[in-house]
Design a binder for these strands. Structure first.
Lengths: 327, 327
DNA sequence: CCGATCGATGTTCACGTAAACATGGCCGAT
DNA sequence: ATCGGCCATGTTTACGTGAACATCGATCGG
């Protein structure tokens, strides 16, 4: 910066003003400084800037795996939204799902330079009310409204209700559910809403099967269900598990949707091209991410209290994998 | 830090030494400082540290979409590998595939504080030889060995050769190819190797169909192929497109593998649970990422010349979607 | 028993930037 | 004509840390 100042024949401060697009610099001076910057290949030093301003223009992002479609899409959408807002994203992957791991990630991030943190919380943590060290704004993507941070999520309950109702409306006596892991908030919300919807409709509530969000997990659950007579409708808690369920049914010679209807959740792009094309609930990850980032940036700017919970409606996409039950 | 020093009754420098785990501090003093840190909730300031050391312990990661399985897996694996090495990952998503966009991302990143950059280069850039501003170590994940940076990738050519040979060995007269977009290095490598393998075997080389890595793109290509008599083997350049191809064949009433064999590429977890389970080429993204990160950190540490190109072998996974041609 | 050496600790300084305050010239209102 | 105020610019300083160098006491070899 000193070199630029010298070359342009101005003071350091004027260079700083130009670098930060301040208005109170004469046009001619600005041009002189800009060209000096170009000549010298000047790049402002973020560390120095952050040191003096206390701002990093960086958001931390804590996620577990990118192997589930929802996480990957959320991470990408958050990154894009942050970029649009002039922020960079610092990613941390947590290996395990314990609170300690998240705390560690959190530490790594606050030690690193972030202004706020997005926690993609597919997993329920050790303690019911997630309490992270204070001082850094946090927005949780998915989870319970219960804890002490702002939260944004697709309305999982609504989504589960939509699929379950859809299957009941087709005439199925009840709907079986292949849930995600028990320690996932999303999985619990979907399962709870499926349960409630069945009860409201006066339908029997069959036992829940648990998967791990993967096709392999869905396949295993599907094999149990395929052996079970009377199963005519299955709601898998995500599309990847639904793929496994479809496969298990195919292996058992049960036709979809002739013998059994299958629906998923998430809105995987590939879902439309499975055999048969999969009925699913599409989440709008872009909007979720947009809200997450704007909420977080608000918190950073105002230092205001968190606490709000935003739920965004998903949309039921009916395809060929669901139909009327066999007579 | 000053507060900690005061509370522990030592100098700033001693606190710094403890914070950096230097050996030359007496155990008792260290404990006193550590407890003072705990009491005051001290966290070292990364910005100040970076300002004085010139190191950020951060890697930049430039990627296009996370929608393709390969990218998502690579991003996750790189993040994990970087974490293990004590680095944080700063992610930038480029919207378009032009060189300008990458340059912009690059600028955003060098302006931000990174010690090195990983470029996940699914797309060919405007200029054939990618030339980025010098001064920052770069490792390219995928791409041509031609350009001026270190490169690590799965051996795409080997993978494509394995699938193509596999299909020829089953007795197919030739193999059709649904390629990824023309501006993708990976797509080009796979297509070129498919082409060469056919020629080596003396098989006819059918025209290439192009997709965009998505199931929808694969579906469209698949519809063309399904109408075409004499097509008995299809190699899709990734698993997601293979899903679309499978669907198109199913819609056209052509049986897999009875009438047509289909193989993919990548090793999508779901591939094993499609109907039929998909033959594919599995890339070991974890190892690729490991190498990328270690290469990059080496470059950062030594400031040494780049230039090396590392190719890691993929593995053919044969499943039920490929079989002998119809007689 | 004394000087050399070494380990623990302290002191000073620079890193690159933007905030706060200072300066000086110009313009418009009285 | 004079003065207040505003605008462009300059000067000084602090941000929190680690490197370099300084100091001091203890230990050890001759």
């Amino acid at each position: 910066m000193a070199d630029v100042a010298a070359l342009a024949g101005v003071s350091n401060q004027t260079v700083s003003r130009v670098a930060n697009n301040r208005s109170n610099v004469e046009e001619e001076t600005r041009q002189r400084v800009l060209s000096a910057m170009r000549v010298l290949g000047y790049r402002p030093n973020t560390a120095a800037r952050a040191l003096v301003t206390g701002q990093f223009r960086t958001l931390g992002l804590i996620s577990s795996t990118l192997g589930t479609f929802g996480n990957a899409r959320t991470v990408e959408a958050v990154t894009r939204a942050a970029q649009r807002a002039g922020y960079t994203v610092n990613m941390v992957a947590v290996e395990t799902r314990t609170e300690r791991a998240v705390h560690e990630a959190f530490g790594r991030l606050t030690m690193q330079a972030v202004d706020g943190i997005v926690l993609i919380e597919a997993q329920i943590l050790d303690t019911p009310a997630l309490r992270l060290p204070p001082g850094v704004p946090v927005v949780v993507a998915g989870g319970d409204a219960g804890h002490h941070h702002a939260m944004v999520d697709t309305d999982q309950a609504l989504g589960a209700r939509l699929v379950t109702r859809h299957l009941l409306d087709l005439g199925h006596e009840t709907v079986w559910h292949v849930s995600g892991p028990e320690d996932s908030y999303a999985a619990r919300h979907r399962a709870a809403s499926w349960h409630a919807t069945l009860k409201e409709a006066g339908a029997a509530v069959p036992p829940v099967l648990y998967g791990d969000w993967s096709a392999a997990g869905g396949h295993e659950a599907g094999r149990h269900l395929a052996r079970r007579p009377g199963v005519t409708a299955i709601f898998a808690a995500n599309d990847q598990m639904a793929i496994g369920v479809l496969r298990a049914l195919a292996e058992a010679g049960r036709r979809v949707p002739g013998d059994v209807s299958v629906a998923g959740f998430d809105g995987l792009d590939e879902a439309a091209f499975l055999s048969p094309p999969l009925t699913t609930v599409r989440q709008d990850f872009d909007v979720v991410a947009e809200r997450i980032v704007s909420l977080l940036i608000d918190q950073i700017a105002t230092g205001a209290a968190p606490g709000s919970a935003v739920l965004l409606p998903p949309r039921l996409v009916v395809r060929e994998s669901t139909g009327t039950p066999p007579r």
